[in-house]
Design a protein around this nucleic acid. Structure first.
Lengths: 393, 393
DNA sequence: GCCATTTAATTCGAGGCTCGAAAAAAATAG
DNA sequence: CTATTTTTTTCGAGCCTCGAATTAAATGGC
């Protein structure tokens, strides 16, 4: 509760959580002893009322630090946040993933986190956890990048190197999962217990929350939405197969279709944002191939979503990434495909929101994941009540 | 633990569950007081050893009864089982679902259960729960049949009528979910925390277990595997849309393709088993259309499974229902489609088992569901320890 | 300025579930 | 018949929670 709301009184916590006042008192006094939380005089709303004033409780910013990192094709970004989630150090530096050897990934990451840690203000807490978001497939245990479009190397271990370097628990997670967690934390009304975050970028990814939990694979991070089959024996996908959703909706697929390059032509993996902007301009000027490229992307995404809706009923969708800039051209065909395929779902009824910039969402997801795990650990490790012993003394 | 194993000693329970001997003693003595379980002298293996002999504990068959029902196109089947899961009454009678009005469904069901209850042996327990398995879509709360291929009526309420008639909790569930639960209970090694049961019959259904829990929809029973899109703008499905898996793998789709009726021709919904057998015979005799019909069914199923594997990693699959009789013709194309679509999954590596008769599995699933829910209820409602009061006396 | 009133937080004793240690129960071995 | 062995039960204690009573800390009114 304190992670969600700062400056709430014990009374308030008791009312919201349903725990008795005595229980809240016991737990908070323990957390205060351990300096996990801090207290402040004065009522929540600042108004002075009759009666004993409330004591406002908040998380102690210096109780711990967490480091979040986002590894992308051309950059590596690290933020260090205090225990309340406030960013207190930040580094974003270039990194040419395509040209890096497998050992450079953990090395550069460790270096960047180390550099960020040297810029901390005095009095900051201790680093307690590291969370890394990457494109591609990770294992469920969060130890390694099993496959990623940003490098040709497979199975790059991350967790162990980070834990050795900083002596705190570390995890690697799929970027789309982190986006979903960030949205769920940011706006739990809209992105409640069932929704999907779909990343529209060079490739297509998905983070899917069902019943309040992220759907992950049995062994891998999975939810490889981009590689669902859209059209058997269809367009060539960068994964080598044919007819995947990504082979219609990824940047390279849209580029290929817009330039009339043929659905069997090799996917380009170096398409600049400017090139995608040009296609958008062309579409705005009525270029039939560009419009068709976006329409086919929309249809592929819509078919894929309709399939998901057939599996677990319709849910709200967040579209994330620079691909959303063409949403005006994609939305119609996408909604049509949903409606075409599932008549129980009126295509126009699905809530769709767009978030053009994925990086801050990935970062936020990493931070909140690390903090919530830290909270769990603190809850577990917190010393049991010592009432009997102190009484005995 | 006693639901899984009869005749186990407290010692054994303590070792298996990790609970202390004292806790097991406390809990079992309470359950004995309430006659939920019964005890028997003599060691588990019958051998007499030195030392105090073990007391074997088992569920008390007469602690309760549950009724399970399977509603099908042409029959209605009911079994009544005692608290250990043993069938003690059984009725299976014809029912023409297609010609029945919406009110006849709960009425016939109540009648059949009532009749079954009159045949109980003396000394049997009280009915405590009713579980019904139906084809089609139910709501997550298990109150109604939202849609079913066996009737043209929608949203037929079941739970309320049953609860009014018998004054015990009742639920309606999707048949494929019940099959999955039955397999999970029957063979937890093979059908562990992640697997799917695919019903191959007139239509195509799926019960999917992920992380030890059935995947259901947000509002409905969902997992409408048969209506995933296999081929956009493809063959006409009985649901009115085009290109669903079912439009290639359902009985009517196989019949249509084998008889060269054209993929747009109206689905027949009265195909007899004999007609399907004829197609199998023709395929055995080398008839190209019949072979192609099964091959296309296999490809559609394989593509759908590959999509599921992309979402949650590969898992074992149980194929259930009379469609499995043609497994010899289906397997090759099915495995090829899995391999084609997901190179990380060697098609031949997926564990596939066949169960030609679905009815006993649905029934078993209903029974075990009802019994496990009953166990939960007993665990919750069981009177708290009264040690202090008895001490005070 | 003091005391009644109000509101928040804490303390105290008890209940429920769990456990380990000790005791009791029920058999065999000699 | 007694020592030994094995299983089960009993007893006391620890933890977490709660409700009731108490304490703390403010304001309002005379």
């Amino acid at each position: 509760m304190l992670r969600r709301h700062a400056n709430v009184s014990r009374k308030h916590i008791s009312q919201e959580t349903g725990l008795s006042a005595s229980t809240v008192s016991a737990i908070t006094s323990e957390l205060l002893d351990e300096a996990v939380i801090v207290s402040l005089q004065g009522t929540e709303d600042g108004a002075l009322r009759r009666g004993r004033p409330q004591v406002r409780l908040s998380l102690n910013p210096n109780a711990a630090l967490v480091a979040s990192a986002v590894q992308q094709l051309d950059r590596i970004a690290v933020t260090v946040c205090d225990y309340t989630g406030k960013t207190i150090a930040e580094i974003d530096r270039p990194f040419r993933a395509r040209e890096a050897g497998p050992e450079e990934f953990p090395r550069m990451l460790i270096e960047t986190i180390s550099d960020a840690l040297t810029t901390l203000p005095p009095g900051a807490g201790q680093l307690e956890r590291i969370e890394l978001g990457v494109q591609g497939i990770t294992d469920v245990e969060g130890t390694a990048m099993l496959w990623s479009p940003i490098t040709r190397y497979r199975n790059i271990g991350m967790k162990e190197a980070l834990e050795d370097a900083f002596a705190v628990p570390a995890r690697v997670s799929n970027d789309c999962c982190m986006i979903a967690l960030a949205l769920h934390w940011r706006d739990p009304e809209r992105f409640a217990d069932n929704f999907a975050a779909v990343l529209l970028s060079h490739g297509i990814g998905m983070g899917l929350m069902l019943n309040g939990e992220l759907l992950t694979g049995i062994r891998s991070s999975a939810t490889e939405f981009g590689h669902l089959s859209h059209m058997p024996h269809g367009a060539l996908c960068r994964c080598g197969r044919s007819g995947c959703i990504e082979a219609y909706a990824g940047d390279y697929a849209i580029y290929r279709r817009a330039t009339n390059a043929g659905s069997e032509s090799a996917p380009r993996n170096d398409i600049a944002q400017a090139e995608m902007s040009e296609i958008m301009e062309a579409a705005k000027n009525g270029d039939a191939d560009s419009i068709a490229a976006f329409a086919e992307a929309g249809e592929a995404l819509g078919t894929g979503l309709a399939n998901m809706f057939a599996l677990v009923d319709p849910f709200p969708v967040a579209l994330v990434g620079h691909g959303t800039r063409a949403y005006g051209f994609i939305e119609g065909p996408l909604r049509r495909a949903i409606g075409d395929i599932n008549p129980y779902v009126s295509g126009s009824g699905i809530e769709i929101s767009c978030f053009p910039d994925e990086k801050p969402l990935i970062m936020e997801g990493c931070t909140i994941t690390a903090l919530l795990e830290l909270d769990e650990e603190i809850a577990r490790s917190t010393a049991p009540h010592q009432k009997v012993f102190t009484d005995a003394v």
